[in-house]
Design a protein around this nucleic acid. Structure first.
Length: 392
DNA sequence: TCTGGGGTCCTAGGACCC
DNA sequence: TCTGGGGTCCTAGGACCC
């Protein structure tokens, strides 16, 4: 089985069997099509409502095992187990694994170590080793050397493709060699991140547990289109939809945007005309009102839209985000911000209670033919009444 | 024919200040 | 002949993460 990205474009998750067939991460779906058809691979559209909800359930269980927890991504979290001895850690980890499995049906693996980088490395082995039974503890462990030796440098957390190639050129091919590299020399080569990498691998923590999710500094919403968009009305509908999404998001954090950027692009692939352009507008007063943001966004689209191109993607960025309470008002403001805030609060309230998009802006369009395709979606088992599993 | 989406951090260089 | 020293802020580009 494989899971596809938005628009059923790329392969973004694979079962063990799919990996064995040679289907690569990030591969465009159409390239994998022959393999998929030949071996009867099930290709599912991504179902973020389901994944998000299941993630939230898992995280809530984890929270019961350590109050010091950082939700790192949709399927990863860091927990602080410091101060516990080996046997206590071990039994807690086992209990945690069993609880998540019992309450959600999701198998998890656990890596423990002195630093985040080493803990990530430990999970790598926890996931793969049969003997480990899902738990690997590298804290003051005799296996640490072996694990570092067996890890290629590109698999270390924080080492991407480009850095891995450079490191290998300097004769650093394994995590162990990276740990033993000269920190000062590496700092010259890779900047402060190089130094942190070495220290973290040596067991000196450079990154703490971030319990509070940080307030976003920018919010982006962009999508590829199902069919290329050639008409400015459809383009404005799409941009309005993205603005609307992004605005809901900043309001949920109590933020206002000082500026917005709109970008349009044709396909990045193949021959023919490639076009990309972006326009940024600084607002006279920071705003979180969809209506106001929309009026500027439309002006931006007018400025960069050129008929004749087959646009494949558009997106919006809200930046310069600041808590509403810190927004600098203007003496010559033309917007009644109190009224606007009441309106947005009412709209968000209704949509929260009755379902996303119950109320939306006319500019977002009705038919929205450019909307994503998702050809093989699993039901939203846990977030939609009509999709709820039935016990027979 | 068909190729995702959303973030953060760091650095170098330029402009500017006293 | 010779031309200081110490900062901050902003931006673009690169790298990384999931």
């Amino acid at each position: 089985m494989v899971v596809l990205s938005n628009n059923d474009g790329c392969i973004i998750a694979r079962s063990g069997e799919a990996k064995k067939l040679g289907i690569k991460m990030g591969m465009p779906c159409f390239q994998a099509r022959p393999l998929i058809e030949k071996h009867g691979v099930v290709a599912l559209s991504s179902n973020y409502a389901l994944y998000g909800d299941m993630s939230r359930r898992v995280m809530n269980i984890l929270l019961q095992f350590s109050p010091e927890m950082e939700v790192y991504s949709i399927d990863e979290a860091f927990l602080d187990f410091s101060g516990l001895n080996w046997s206590k850690r071990r039994s807690l980890a086992r209990e945690l694994m069993a609880s998540v499995y019992r309450w959600t049906g999701i198998p998890v693996s656990i890596g423990m170590a002195e630093t985040k980088t080493l803990a990530k490395l430990a999970t790598h082995f926890a996931k793969r080793s049969k003997k480990a039974a899902g738990i690997v503890d590298l804290t003051a462990s005799s296996y640490l050397e072996q694990a570092l030796e067996m890890t290629v440098v590109g698999d270390v957390w924080g080492v991407g493709g480009g850095t891995a190639t450079r490191l290998e050129k300097w004769g650093i091919g394994t995590a162990r060699q990276l740990r033993d590299a000269d920190g000062q020399w590496l700092q010259q080569k890779l900047g402060v991140n190089g130094r942190r990498l070495v220290l973290e691998l040596q067991g000196v923590p450079c990154y703490g547990i971030e319990e509070e999710p940080p307030i976003p500094k920018s919010v982006r919403c962009s999508r590829s289109f199902r069919e290329p968009v050639e008409d400015i009305t459809a383009m404005k509908e799409a941009v309005a939809t993205y603005i609307s999404r992004a605005a809901v998001k900043i309001r949920s954090h109590g933020l206002a945007a000082a500026a917005l950027t709109i970008f349009l692009r044709t396909s990045r692939f193949g021959a023919g005309d490639h076009y990309y352009d972006a326009a940024t507008i600084e607002l006279p007063v920071s705003s979180q009102s969809t209506r106001e943001l929309l009026s500027y966004a439309f002006k931006a689209v007018d400025g960069i839209f050129h008929p004749g191109y087959r646009y494949k993607k558009a997106g919006v960025l809200l930046h310069g985000l600041l808590p509403v309470s810190q927004v600098q008002p203007s003496m010559i403001d033309t917007v009644d911000r109190r009224r606007e805030a009441c309106l947005m609060k009412a709209v968000d309230g209704i949509n929260n209670r009755l379902g996303t998009d119950i109320i939306r802006f006319a500019g977002e369009g009705l038919k929205q033919p450019w909307r994503l395709k998702a050809g093989n979606m699993t039901p939203a088992y846990t977030t939609r009444w009509s999709d709820i599993p039935v016990v027979k």
